[in-house]
């Protein structure tokens, strides 16, 4: 008997991700050799498993779900979210300038410049350009801190979260454990704006970071923090 055919009946379990050693290793060896019989069994297993999905009882989804799914492809979503992000960001900078008491003359010039920037960003034809394909893009973020007002995060390319999970922002002090700065979920296009209002002791802060947590939050990071942004002196 053809050794490949000895595995007949196991390919379905293999493509379901359920086959264990040693059978799994034998099938992978067949596939690595590009054995035509193995390829045929793999195709049939994919077919059988796909059709098995139709055994599920019929259930009607809500109309809202269709809108949610279609929002994935909305070309304006990315531009809109970034425009909103930059508007929020610029507004935060303006507020920061006011708060720090820049002299009136300098402030006026700054405000005019910010207004021009806002007008530019508000134009619907303004687009954010990004390099690389969606899968190549790595998460990026800008973090703005204001000791009296809080922390503003503007991020893009955040991976989609599993259900029941959220991104958590943390302020990592120079001494002691990270301080939670709120939870958020990105839009479908991977962008997010998260503002945690409230005083922050910047003298004691070493960095701002993100982690993935249960959407109920965690007292401390339970996954490896990323997008770690140092708080400069």
């Amino acid at each position: 008997m053809n050794p490949v055919n000895d595995h007949n009946g196991l390919y379905e379990l293999y493509v379901l991700g359920l086959l264990e050693e040693p059978e799994r290793g034998r099938i992978e060896e067949d596939l690595r050799r590009n054995d035509p019989a193995a390829r045929a069994l793999l195709r049939r297993a994919l077919e059988t498993n796909a059709i098995l999905g139709t055994l599920a009882p019929e259930v009607a989804p809500s109309k809202h779900l269709r809108r949610r799914v279609l929002s994935i492809a909305e070309p304006r979503a990315s531009r809109l979210s970034w425009n909103l992000a930059w508007v929020a960001l610029s507004a935060c900078l303006v507020a920061g300038l006011v708060y720090t008491g820049v002299q009136r003359q300098g402030l006026q010039a700054e405000l005019e410049q910010r207004n021009a920037t806002l007008a530019f960003l508000r134009r619907p034809e303004t687009r954010l350009l990004q390099t690389g394909t969606a899968e190549e893009r790595r998460p990026v973020a800008k973090v703005f801190v204001n000791g009296a007002r809080g922390v503003l995060l503007v991020a893009a390319n955040l991976p989609a979260l599993e259900v029941g999970r959220a991104y958590a922002m943390w302020v990592v002090p120079k001494v002691g454990g990270p301080r939670p700065m709120g939870l958020f979920k990105p839009l479908a296009d991977g962008t997010a704006i998260h503002l945690q209002a409230g005083a922050v002791n910047l003298d004691e802060a070493a960095a701002v970071a993100l982690s993935v947590e249960p959407d109920g939050g965690s007292p401390a990071p339970t996954t490896t923090p990323f997008l770690i942004t140092p708080v400069a002196e």
Binding site: A56, V59, P61, L65
Partner: peptide, 8 residues
């Protein structure tokens, strides 16, 4: 395929 995927 949305309805089938959702039911599954």
């Amino acid at each position: 395929y949305g309805r089938i995927a959702f039911a599954l």
